[in-house]
């Protein structure tokens, strides 16, 4: 085989190795939180809980509907993975935001992205959210770095992360009541 041919074949092989598809919600949860059982739960936030989330997340409005996975192992709850769908530009993206039992964000996965792929945030960029908590009051440029050419996506994800941490805190408080 010629040098050029070998180069082309190896390029194609490397490229094929990187085949990337969106994980399903459960696959993503398993990647972010290691446990024995993965149960899905839906709940509705009361009006009072909604205004608490709005205040914690500094957002204008939020929905009442919450869908999440509860991950458990032998010693109890390991964490939760929240599903969130929001608009990016004119089309939505769906994210999964995992929070451990201490209230720290452990990972974000993109489950669906309808805008053109070049506006999508990369996994590396989303690593900066790891360990963040609701008290950090996440905001773009203050404590979250942007993405060149995908500012709107970056802000949507930052707001989503802050919203999910706020919802998590409110639901934890509900348990104590």
């Amino acid at each position: 085989m010629s040098f050029k041919g070998a180069l082309l074949v190896s390029l194609v092989m490397v490229a094929t190795l990187h085949a990337g598809k969106f994980p399903s919600a459960e696959e993503a949860t398993r990647q972010l939180l290691a446990g024995n059982t993965y149960d899905r739960e839906t709940t509705l936030l009361t009006k009072a809980e909604q205004s608490e989330v709005i205040q914690l997340a500094n957002q204008k409005k939020i929905g009442a509907f919450v869908s999440r996975y509860i991950v458990r192992n032998e010693s109890g709850i390991v964490g939760y993975a929240y599903l969130d769908k929001h608009l990016v530009r004119t089309l939505p993206e769906t994210l999964l935001v995992a929070v451990d039992s201490n209230g720290a964000l452990v990972g974000i996965k993109v489950l669906a992205f309808r805008e053109p792929a070049e506006f999508m945030a990369r996994e590396g960029w989303m690593e900066q959210f790891h360990g963040r908590r609701v008290e950090d009051q996440l905001r773009m440029r203050r404590n979250v770095d942007g993405i060149t050419g995908a500012t709107i996506t970056a802000r949507a994800i930052t707001q989503c992360a802050r919203r999910m941490l706020a919802i998590h805190q409110v639901l934890e408080q509900r348990k104590k009541k």
């Binding site: 459960e26 899905r40 839906t42 509907f65 869908s67 599903l83």
Partner: peptide
Amino acid sequence: LMDEVEKDWFGDVIP
């Protein structure tokens, strides 16, 4: 109702 809402929102990511 909740299942319907969930299906509507997340039916594409929870097969």
